[in-house]
């Protein structure tokens, strides 16, 4: 860079920007989008952890606090002021909102991660099987995933959840995962088909490698960028689906989640009574979560695809 500055003494703004961009080019992982996204998600996890240590979680039970108190510094319609005992206010059945989100926010994230993990694992196994075994197996898997893609997941899930009644978080993740494996399956199958003919896989076959070695040691590492991106996108989908179900009043009945809090707020007429903190705070947290995930996805895209971080 030194010779650049000597040739023209004062750098133009464009040149300085170019220089800054090139520094970033040096280490792809120092991607600002990625870092921001990770920080936002860690914030949610941190809220859950610190909250459990520092806050009284018994306040999530009905009637443990006065009703409909506003956050500190605000007044509700009854002219009651917010108090520090319940800094984010309370809901219509006397539950502390801070305790609710300390419990609920990590739960929503957890459902998303777990569902995505199960979906991806299924997708990896089916995708590799289809791509590698081929023939009849491939046909079955391909047709199955194509058919599943055309079915609207929310419709089926509403029926399922309504039939089950109260479900656990893990059960809900499993149900959602049933609609997340199709696109990774297709993606991996396509990649495996093209990688099968690549030079290094032929080289590995020449080296007497077993099928499982070729699958997991030669092919899978090269799929990592795709898998990461797909994983994060699936987490987002899973959370959207989970929250959607919860806002409809389905999903876990006894475990606080962000979606359930919003459902209760809507049900109790919080919008009319101007109890904005009741539905507003969970919504903001969900927004933070989605923005964080989006940032990570964009960041990972740039890390794994150098063409997107072109210098100009």
């Amino acid at each position: 860079m030194a010779d650049n500055t000597t040739s023209s003494a004062p750098m133009t703004r464009a040149e300085r920007r170019l220089q800054k961009r090139m520094k970033r080019f040096d280490n792809p992982w120092m991607n600002p989008k990625l870092i921001w996204g990770v920080c936002l998600l860690l914030g949610i996890v941190g809220l859950g952890l610190l909250g459990r240590l520092l806050w009284n979680l018994d306040l999530v039970f009905t009637g443990s606090a006065p009703l409909k108190l506003p956050p500190v510094g605000f007044e509700n319609l009854r002219r009651q002021e917010g108090v520090w005992d319940y800094p984010l206010g309370t809901d219509g059945s006397g539950r502390d909102l801070l305790a609710l989100i300390v419990m609920g926010a990590p739960n929503s994230l957890w459902v998303g991660l777990l569902a995505s993990l199960i979906g991806m694992s299924t997708g990896i196994i089916l995708g590799f099987t289809a791509g590698f075994v081929g023939g009849r197996t491939d046909d079955v898997i391909r047709v199955l995933s194509d058919v599943m893609i055309t079915i609207p997941p929310l419709l089926i899930l509403v029926v399922f959840q309504a039939a089950y009644g109260d479900v656990s978080l893990a059960m809900m993740s499993l149900l959602i995962a049933g609609f997340l494996w199709q696109s990774p399956t297709r993606l991996i199958r396509a990649q495996v088909l093209s990688m099968r003919e690549s030079g290094y896989v032929q080289m590995a076959r020449l080296s007497g490698a077993s099928t499982s070695h070729i699958m997991f040691r030669e092919m899978l590492p090269n799929l990592v960028p795709y898998l990461f991106g797909s994983f994060i996108a699936n987490v987002t989908t899973a959370i959207v689906t989970a929250v959607g179900l919860e806002v409809l009043g389905l999903g876990p009945q006894r475990i606080p989640t962000l979606g359930r809090t919003i459902y209760e707020a809507i049900n109790a007429g919080a919008l009319i009574q101007n109890l904005w903190w009741w539905w507003g705070i969970p919504t903001v947290l969900l927004a933070v979560m989605f923005i964080g995930l989006l940032m990570i996805n964009l960041g990972l895209d740039e890390v794994s695809n150098p063409r997107l971080r072109r210098l100009s």
Binding site: S198, G199, Y200, Q202, M203, A204, E218, P221, N222
Partner: peptide
Amino acid sequence: YACFNPFY
């Protein structure tokens, strides 16, 4: 160019 696994 294709004969080496880019990962290793």
